[in-house]
Design a protein around this nucleic acid. Structure first.
Length: 488
RNA sequence: GUCCCGUUGGUGUAGCUGGCCCAACACGUCGCCCUUUCAAGGCGAAGAUCGCGGGUUCGAAUCCCGCACGGGACGCCA
């Protein structure tokens, strides 16, 4: 039977990288085994959930290429896929638990519970629910019910040892005495997380629950619930957490954590997926740059490692560079041109020329946004000279004359391509008995205003004769006025 | 405080059915090559007493025990 897995985000925040990786592992597992990937929105916390967050999560998943087989917008035979639309199911399940003797009503006030916890915490201890309401005599319960007192439903935790076989950690056992009678249905009729997940996982026939390590201690509760509902317990696989550089759980403090943010910064979805897949998982061999198809073919739960992983941005950048290097140029242009336009850098319509430019810059970019600054000198009309470039390369005696001579030579360079431009530059340098490098550096400043650029002859060929000559002459003028000023 | 998970170079991992491991791959770092600069690419180097301490064994990163440290969970949040 093909497996059914699910990703069940709570729309109380953005899709962060940890959630994205959990989704990815689920997706890969499903695809590897020809199974089904279900997306379920856990929005039982009405206060904190929002439609915008749902939209953002869906968008993030699609951007990564993780389309779901069942869930929001695509439907499926096991819906609804929003927990807020399944409230009846949870209430029925809670009633069934009570009827079966697995759960009971609790009339304790929130104030009392909080006080108990606070005093316990003051002693440095944890408080467990004292089962006060489990011992209530029937007539007392009847009286409370008659007055319409608010009541929650608590699961009656049996005294045993619950154990489950975790696909990444092996057997994990809990003494249930350390687990209190947890609430499954709040007094407002809304289910808690524990009830809704289990009910949904049963209804949606989930066979494998792949989720974060932070759920390990919830799992015995879920196992007990599955058993109380006489449902088969799915296989659990708890994947390690993603940590920041300080080994603390990844959070806002660490900078970008949402996939939307990485998208905005110019990371490619394939690179993101590849990088995330390698955080806590390995194919078992030395492969690292892997497509979604490669990952799907290689994926297995056994390859997931047990320890938490630090999110290493440097490696992500490297990975992104690998994918930028391989991106077909038309797709690269489609991704990058809008960024340039947004930044106020005009891009000509001539796509051949733009493609050549991008090819020149490609090995120098790690993120798509890098292209904007990299490309700026080739797209704007006037070149701004960086002070350090001026200082470093323009202090040559008679430089203006040398440049004027070069401009003259370039005027008749034909064709104006890389080898001919190179010949003209080197020829001029030889004629004037200066090192080619000196002239090259100065011309780079003329053409780009910077100390660094792609190979100068490629740059000039790309700029074309007119703009090249014009920029060299502009630098000649700049030098002349500067000299005049220094004498005044 | 209690329970649970984890611990291989700065980072991510491989190795973990014990010997082929004086530990491998990738990122990062450093150097060299290429070269007009910056990248990219190629080549090379440094960097881990495999958390610590005991044990088992002819032999342990690999098996057992203890400890330390890190992380997570202990809600009518998910």
């Amino acid at each position: 039977m093909p497996p059914r897995v699910r990703f069940a985000p709570s729309p109380t925040g953005f899709l962060h990288v940890g959630g994205a990786r959990t989704a990815l592992f689920n997706w890969l597992f499903a695809k590897h085994h020809g199974g089904t990937f279900v997306l379920r929105i856990e929005d039982t916390d009405v206060e904190r959930s929002s439609d915008d967050m749902v939209a953002g999560i869906l968008e993030g998943l699609r951007w990564l290429g993780l389309q779901w087989d069942e869930g929001p917008e695509v439907g499926g035979p096991h819906g609804a896929y929003f927990q807020s639309q399944r409230l009846d199911r949870y209430r029925a399940a809670a009633a069934a638990l009570v009827a079966g003797g697995h759960a009971y009503s609790c009339y304790c006030s929130l104030e009392r519970l909080r006080e108990e916890r606070d005093t316990a915490e003051a002693r440095g201890e944890a408080w467990q629910y004292d089962r006060a309401c489990l011992r209530l005599p029937p007539e007392r319960i009847a009286a409370l019910e008659a007055t319409g007192a608010p009541r929650a439903i608590r699961f009656k935790v049996p005294e045993t040892t619950t154990a489950f076989a975790d696909a990444v950690h092996g057997r994990i056992a809990f003494d249930t005495r350390t687990i209190e009678d947890f609430v499954v249905l709040r007094s407002d009729g809304h289910p808690t997380y524990h009830l809704s997940v289990v009910v949904d996982d049963i209804d949606m026939q989930i066979t494998h629950v792949i989720r974060g390590d932070d759920h390990i201690s919830n799992t015995p509760k879920h196992v007990m619930l599955f058993e109380a509902m006489a449902a088969p317990v799915p296989v659990f696989a708890h994947v390690p957490l993603i940590l920041g550089a300080d080994k603390k759980r990844l959070s806002k403090r660490h900078g970008a954590t949402s996939v939307t943010e990485y998208r905005r910064q110019g990371y490619l979805p394939d690179a993101m997926v590849n990088f995330l897949a390698l955080l806590g998982w390995s194919p078992g061999d030395d492969r690292e740059v892997m497509s979604l198809d490669d990952l799907t073919a290689a994926f297995s739960l056994e390859g997931i490692s047990g320890g938490n992983a630090v999110f290493n941005t440097e490696k992500l950048d490297w990975m992104n560079g690998q994918y930028i290097a391989k991106l077909p140029v038309d797709r690269l242009a489609a991704a990058v041109v809008p960024l340039m336009t947004d930044a106020g850098v005009p891009v000509p319509a001539a796509s051949e020329w733009v493609h050549s430019l991008l090819e020149l810059l490609r090995p120098r970019a790690r993120r798509l946004v890098d292209f904007v600054e990299l490309a700026r000198p080739y797209l704007v009309d006037t070149v701004d000279y960086q002070p350090e470039a001026v200082e470093k390369h323009l202090g040559i005696p008679n430089l203006g004359d040398h440049l004027a001579a070069l401009a003259m030579a370039l005027r008749t360079t034909d064709p104006f391509d890389e080898p001919h431009v190179e010949a003209a530059v080197r020829g001029t340098a030889a004629d004037r008995a200066i090192k080619a490098g000196v002239l090259i550096h100065a011309v780079r400043v003329a053409a780009t205003g910077r100390t660094t650029s792609p190979g100068l002859f490629e740059v000039l060929a790309l700029l074309g004769r007119d703009r090249t000559v014009q920029r060299i002459e502009e630098l000649v003028n700049f030098l002349a006025t500067r000299t005049a000023q220094s004498f005044s």
